[in-house]
Amino acid sequence: MTIKILFVIISGFGGGLAVGAGFVAFLTVLGLIPRLTQLTKTKKLIHWYEWAVIFGAIAGTAGGLNFPVFYFPSFFAIPIGLASGMFVGMLAAALTEVLNVLPILAKRVYVEDRIIALLMAIVFGKVFGSLFQWVYFVDYR
């Protein structure tokens, strides 16, 4: 019995360790946090951002497992939705596909001076696709 429990604890801990390390590695590769410190000029506070990510990951895990319900008024969903959208948007922007495709594409179609317009096409496309999915697409399953 004790050995069983011990084995479960060790395997759970090991799984968490691997997933946590993978998550942090993913964030590091994308360079999201350095970019945010660069934008806000808070390079000295980067350790606090690390802890924010760690506590966020732990809160997400705990919330997913225990499912607490808070009964806040509905508009509480707005800032949380906005923040999660911004985070996903930054992830999407940081993905190297976007960063690598744009320079090549801009050179191919000779629009190096209008690269912002091409960038905006991607941005509007993401917003449109997301809105379209939530408002219409989810009804047609």
């Binding site: 509905s74 906005l82 948007g89 930054m90 999407a92 922007a93 941005v123 809105l131 939530w134």
Partner: peptide, 30 residues
């Protein structure tokens, strides 16, 4: 459901700010 305690099919109050934030985050990154 976790935030408000209500069970809805389409939580648009969450999803529309999410969609706007998606664009905002990309613009902010660049």
């Amino acid at each position: 459901t976790m935030i408000t305690g209500k069970r809805v099919e389409k939580p648009l109050l969450f999803q529309i700010p999410y969609s706007i934030g998606l664009g905002l985050g990309m613009v902010l990154f660049f």
